[in-house]
């Protein structure tokens, strides 16, 4: 395919308090149909988007966190999480939704989508993109 570009979605905002997280997820879902090379980065308060145990029943808002688990089926398999942002918030990888995908090049073995990265690695990750979307 001639028009494949590397797209990075940068998520730095918490869910629910503002609509950015939900509407950015909608872009990721639509974008998946365009068969681009897609990556998601969660840093700063964006790490709360993929926190485990979200229950919006009492707040009467739409809980969109299960959608992140479905992204693997849309071939969105590269989710980068800023280590420092987790630490600053007293979180560890275990506090995040376990995001996985089936690797079709490896007999559909289930693999982790989340990769913890340092800020230096984020700098390198950004440099290798063609398009960076932020919301």
């Amino acid at each position: 395919m001639s028009d494949t570009k590397k797209f990075l979605y940068v998520n730095r905002k918490a869910p629910y308090g503002t609509v950015y997280a939900l509407e950015s997820l909608e872009v990721v879902l639509i974008g998946a149909a365009f068969e681009q090379d897609v990556q998601l980065l969660f840093m700063d308060d964006g790490v709360f988007q993929i926190a485990k145990g979200q229950d919006t029943g009492e707040a009467e808002m739409k809980n969109f966190s299960p959608t992140y688990s479905a992204l693997g089926d849309y071939e969105v398999t590269k989710m980068y999480v800023d280590k420092q942002s987790l630490e600053e918030r007293g979180l560890t990888l275990d506090d995040l939704i376990h995001l996985t995908y089936e690797d079709e090049d490896d007999d559909y073995a289930e693999k982790d989508s989340i990769r913890l990265v340092s800020r230096e690695e984020i700098a390198a990750l950004m440099e290798e993109q063609d398009v960076i979307l932020s919301f």
């Binding site: 028009d3 570009k5 797209f7 872009v27 974008g31 365009f34």
Partner: peptide, 11 residues
């Protein structure tokens, strides 16, 4: 129009 227009814009 739809969100696809944004992705297309990026491409």
């Amino acid at each position: 129009s739809g969100l696809g227009q944004l992705i297309e814009g990026g491409i």
